[in-house]
Amino acid sequence: MIYIKFQDLSMEKQEELLQVSREHVTHLFGDSIKKYVEETGANYENLIDEEMFKNLYNYNFVFNI
């Protein structure tokens, strides 16, 4: 669960959330994505970015007002 103050949805906070999601995706799926890239020639960064955004929807956010 990620706790966020409702008034703290600044661009910096959004970038921080994206970075956390990117690290999480890289940790969980990095090896399998690299293998897929080697087999298909796809772009690694694009695949990581797509999974990063999908991963954000799996988080439970709690907004403190």
Rank of each mutant, 00 (worst) to 15 (best):
E12C: 05
E12V: 08
E12P: 06
Q14G: 00
E15L: 09
E15H: 00
V20K: 05
R22T: 01
R22G: 01
E23N: 02
E23L: 05
E23F: 06
H24T: 10
H24E: 10
T26L: 02
T26V: 02
T26M: 02
H27S: 09
H27T: 08
H27L: 13
H27C: 10
F29M: 11
G30F: 13
G30C: 12
S32P: 07
S32Y: 08
K35W: 01
Y36R: 04
Y36S: 00
V37L: 00
V37A: 03
V37H: 01
E39Y: 12
E39M: 13
T40G: 05
G41K: 11
G41S: 10
G41W: 11
A42S: 11
N43P: 04
E45Y: 05
E45F: 07
N46S: 08
N46T: 09
N46E: 04
N46I: 08
L47D: 02
L47A: 04
L47N: 05
D49F: 00
E50P: 01
E50C: 04
E51V: 14
E51D: 13
F53D: 05
K54N: 14
K54A: 15
K54R: 14
L56Q: 06
Y57Q: 10
F61Y: 15
F61L: 13
V62W: 15
V62T: 14
V62Y: 15
F63M: 04
F63L: 10
F63V: 06
N64Y: 14
